[in-house]
């Protein structure tokens, strides 16, 4: 079984004013390709820090993070950007769409920052169109985020996360701002992506949502406190 990503003995120290805080104290997890992991834990447990590291938004103080066979912990800022662009798709709790852009333009943003800045041609346009249809927004390409409901915005975010065909999808409380009906829709979508072979790492504190994942990891005080596997 090939690994999509792997963290080995990950540690992260912060300076909170003059006081050093150990947010992660040695976390090791393997993420096989096609996995669907839910990370749970109370606030301050280090799950946000872990997600930031998994998202290559930050470098660990000690330990290794390997994505697509490469160690992220030693990379430069530009290399981290490339990893985020090509290997990771982000889904945020508050959608984080760019307000002045249309649905189409929002989905296009990651394409814009690809290595070598290739032109966005008809082929790429077609891919964006397909993704929009996949998330059920094919008719609303020229809408702006404020014209869409929360669920629709999150679906745009999902399409955007998929546009560069990443190894891993990182979802940070993807249903945190949604009602239960839309929550269900979004989770259905993530499950479908997972069934199609995409690796998904999701942070949540709703057990009902976490239960839909293949396995759950519980964090406490910067360490993994427990792990449970539910049959998918």
């Amino acid at each position: 079984m090939t690994l999509a990503a792997e963290v080995i003995n990950l540690e992260k120290d912060y300076m909170l004013g003059a006081v050093p805080v150990q947010a992660l104290r040695g976390v090791s997890i393997e993420f096989p390709r096609g996995d669907f992991v839910a990370i749970m834990g109370s606030s301050g447990s280090g799950k946000s820090t872990l997600l930031n590291l998994l998202g290559a938004l930050d470098r660990p103080t000690r330990g290794k993070y390997i994505v697509a066979g490469r160690d992220v912990s030693q990379m430069t800022d530009d290399e981290l950007s490339t990893i985020r662009n090509e290997k990771i798709g982000f889904i945020f709790q508050s959608y984080n769409l760019i307000p002045q852009y249309t649905v189409l333009e929002n989905i296009e943003v990651p394409m814009h920052y690809r290595t070598g800045y290739p032109r966005i041609g008809p082929l790429q346009q077609k891919r964006i169109q397909e993704l929009a249809e996949l998330v059920g927004l094919g008719e609303r390409l020229d809408h702006r985020p404020f014209q869409l409901s929360g669920g629709q915005q999150q679906r745009v975010a999902i399409a955007r996360a998929l546009v560069n065909d990443p190894e891993i999808i990182l979802a940070d409380e993807p249903t945190g701002n949604l009602d239960s009906k839309t929550e269900h829709e979004i989770m259905e979508m993530l499950l479908r992506l997972n069934r199609e072979g995409r690796t998904i790492i999701m942070v949540t504190h709703e057990p009902a949502v976490a239960r839909l994942a293949k396995r759950q990891i519980y964090m406490k005080d910067g360490l993994i406190a427990g792990e449970g596997i539910f049959p998918g």
């Binding site: 530009d78 984080n96 760019i98 990651p110």
Partner: peptide, 16 residues
């Protein structure tokens, strides 16, 4: 600032 954060998360380099 938030838009800048989003772009950085989606792969924009400092130079971009």
């Amino acid at each position: 600032t938030r838009e800048i954060g989003i772009r950085r998360a989606l792969g924009a380099k400092q130079h971009d």
